[in-house]
Amino acid sequence: MSLKIKALTKSPWVYHLCAGGSCNNCDIEILDCLTPRFDVERFGVTLIGSVRHADALLVSGIVTKKTAPLVKQIWEQAPKPCLVVAIGGCACSQGMFKDCYTANPVPLDELIPVHAYVPGCPPKPETMIAGIVKLLGSLTK
């Protein structure tokens, strides 16, 4: 395992990207991860505001026709290696909004590469933490 990967697993900076059609609950649970009960800063996870600093994109919600180009653009702006985590049922599979007339015909994981899926509606903060830990664990193998 290289030092580079090891450092990445110890200091994942995440950028939160709400892809559009979402009920906002995943977004709030992501913020919840930062607050005293879960405090992901313990693991070096920091929520950052510039996608240029991102090591992981946390994507929530379905991609709508209107946001699809933006989502793609943001992914292109992220410095590689960058991981994408689909948070919640909508981001994983378009969930119940699959048949909406505004849903982008191409789901998130065909629009940009997705490295991990955290299902749930919304996933509990513990689930998100577990998902990210698993993803980081898979890097070191």
């Binding site: 709030i28 909406c100 007339y101």
Partner: peptide, 27 residues
């Protein structure tokens, strides 16, 4: 940006399915 067209979606669901859809209007 977040428009999903839930009103239309609800017309395709049964009365017992709709609560789950409208629940997800907002978290």
């Amino acid at each position: 940006w977040n428009h999903r067209g839930i009103e239309k979606l609800c017309e395709t669901k049964t009365y017992d399915q709709v609560p789950f859809v409208v629940e997800r209007i907002c978290g």
